[in-house]
Design a protein around this nucleic acid. Structure first.
Lengths: 348, 348
DNA sequence: CTGAAAGCGCTAACAA
DNA sequence: TTGTTAGCGCTTTCAG
């Protein structure tokens, strides 16, 4: 007859005829007499006992949960990060809480604040914009935070960034090298950090190749497949021979729009994206893309976070624990696929 | 000077000069004198107080966390479910824990068992196979569980299923109606529930259309883009005029392989998938697919779970609470896109 | 080696 | 209306 609820150390203690302290010790692998150990183990097994994680957390001051907050769970880039993070944190015995902020700054701040309710021991955050409120909230965070993205200097938080400026330059140079001269740029919102950086890289690339910057070859929109398609249609009248897109979703949408118009990729226009996500591989034609090390960044972020967590169960409010903030940068890498093969002469 | 830790009701009580009970009452919106309320509010604000969720959970016996365990977070179908579930549970004030089981049965069982550690109040599970161990574990679950998928009769758990048999039949009939006669089938593992059902539907569809079942036109492999590509290459020698695939990932891979061989879709071969995930829309050509109501199933599962949760904070161990298990079935719906347009005469 | 007891932060009786 | 107090289940001194 159940006593009305799941078994606790008390039920075990009673059944084994020992104190709850002994139960706790045995179950946590501490020393105990052969006999005691035996009886506790058996009682626990018979009752199907599983320790209550909440009680443990309350006592220990840590939940062994970590939170990963990203803009959009539908973007394969973040899926790649989740996988990498998961791998690291799981090995360290942490559960991972996933949170999709839909790129809403308000939501990002809420996540940051939620560290305070002690639901998770630490946070990996991918912000899309960095406002003053972000900076303030990051400074006041109630627990360790690692940001994946570029932070203004002085924010006391570990971060892992991609070198998207260099990455974008890489792509432009590649397009130029394959004979493209009117390289259009489909960007996300220019007021986001990635958007800003990728545009800088695009312009740097043009400059390096001796190509002029033409405003009519640049479109700024949202990140997303549909937005990419619209942007491509809008750019066509300007007569580009290549579309460089700020991420794979945009590139996929753009390629789609071109094909739907009966244009050939890459014969008529080359298309390149960024992130080298799964989308780049499953697109038709397969997309040239700049690998910004998503998985690598995720892995690194998780490691940084675990590092902060070690030794210091719950950082005291206010002052940050451990060494000064660290920043890692993942180097970009161009992955060439069919979508940017050199233009061949049009069919006779 | 911080007292070495985040503020608690004690700090607030001291600062406001009231008892901790009053603090709790005010903060939980219970009655209190104007004056008291005022002072507590102010003290809480000044201290930046946020209630400790863990302590609350321990006291209340519920975490206000729910778990969603799916086979693969990289599959857009599950992303769609996550979105739908999120929407429902968020509105009800629950946090959502995401867990990717990688379709490992062992992992699914672990999740089920983990309900016992009281980390979450309930679970939505998408199993890929149902073993005896699953049935046993589902029966013994320590909290409410809703399964998305088909369950053997008698398992005392709410479930939401897709009618993939009918869905597959729909697709075959459509292919037949557009003039295809040698309709090949690319399935996932036949020993999974979805794999089994989709194959039943395929055969039913053939029968309805008066087409013979030809073993050489069927391939069973893993679910996944790469597997789809391999399967398509393997089927080509058998001379199919359509490839019906058990999900969109397979269909995308298959279409890819065909295009890479220089074949035209749909002119030479039609391709259709199932799930109507985002992949179907971003594929080239856009894929005809059978919508199995992923979002709808997610939403419904969340509702069922919340329903069980209501009124009964923590179901006592063993006996299940509330009404008998309920099962909902989402009707399939064919979404026709370019990949299955009727074959035109080959170019002269 | 083992047991009694304190206490993590909070809510909810029960008293005053 | 308010304060005192008893736990929620667990880990961890501190005595024995």
């Amino acid at each position: 007859m159940p006593d009305g609820g799941p078994p606790t150390i008390v039920s075990i203690a009673e059944r084994a005829g020992v104190s709850i302290a002994s139960v706790s010790r045995v179950l946590n692998g501490q020393g105990a007499r052969r006999d005691t150990t035996e009886r506790v183990r058996r009682a626990a097994a018979e009752l199907g006992y599983v320790p209550n994680a909440v009680a443990r957390s309350l006592k220990g001051g840590r939940t062994r949960q970590l939170t990963f907050a990203m803009p959009d769970i539908g973007n394969p880039v973040y899926v790649a990060m989740v996988r990498a993070i998961q791998e690291v944190t799981k090995a360290a015995g942490y559960r991972l809480l996933l949170h999709s902020t839909d790129a809403v700054a308000e939501d990002e701040l809420a996540v940051l604040r939620s560290l305070q309710d002690r639901t998770s021991d630490g946070l990996i955050l991918v912000p899309i914009r960095i406002t003053d409120a972000h900076v303030a909230a990051l400074g006041a965070a109630a627990g360790p935070v690692v940001v994946i993205g570029s932070l203004p200097p002085g924010v006391p938080v570990d971060s892992v960034r991609a070198d998207s400026v260099a990455g974008a330059t890489l792509a432009v140079r590649h397009l130029h090298a394959t004979g493209r001269r009117r390289i259009a740029f489909v960007n996300g919102p220019a007021d986001t950090v990635p958007g800003h950086h990728r545009e800088l890289g695009y312009r740097a690339g043009l400059a390096e190749c001796g190509l002029p910057y033409r405003p009519e070859l640049v479109v700024r929109t949202e990140f997303g497949v549909e937005a990419g398609a619209r942007a491509a249609r809008r750019l066509l009248p300007a007569g580009p021979d290549a579309l460089f897109c700020a991420n794979d979703q945009l590139a996929l949408g753009a390629a789609h729009a071109l094909l739907a118009r009966g244009l050939r990729v890459p014969a008529d226009l080359a298309v390149a994206g960024m992130d080298d996500s799964e989308l780049a591989q499953v697109a038709w034609p397969p997309l040239t893309s700049v690998d910004l090390g998503s998985a690598e960044r995720g892995r690194r972020a998780a490691e940084l976070l675990l590092d902060r967590l070690d030794g210091r169960p719950a950082p005291p409010g206010g002052e940050r624990a451990g060494p000064a903030p660290r920043t890692t940068t993942a180097p970009p890498r161009l992955v060439v696929r069919a979508s940017t093969a050199p233009a061949t002469d049009p069919k006779p």
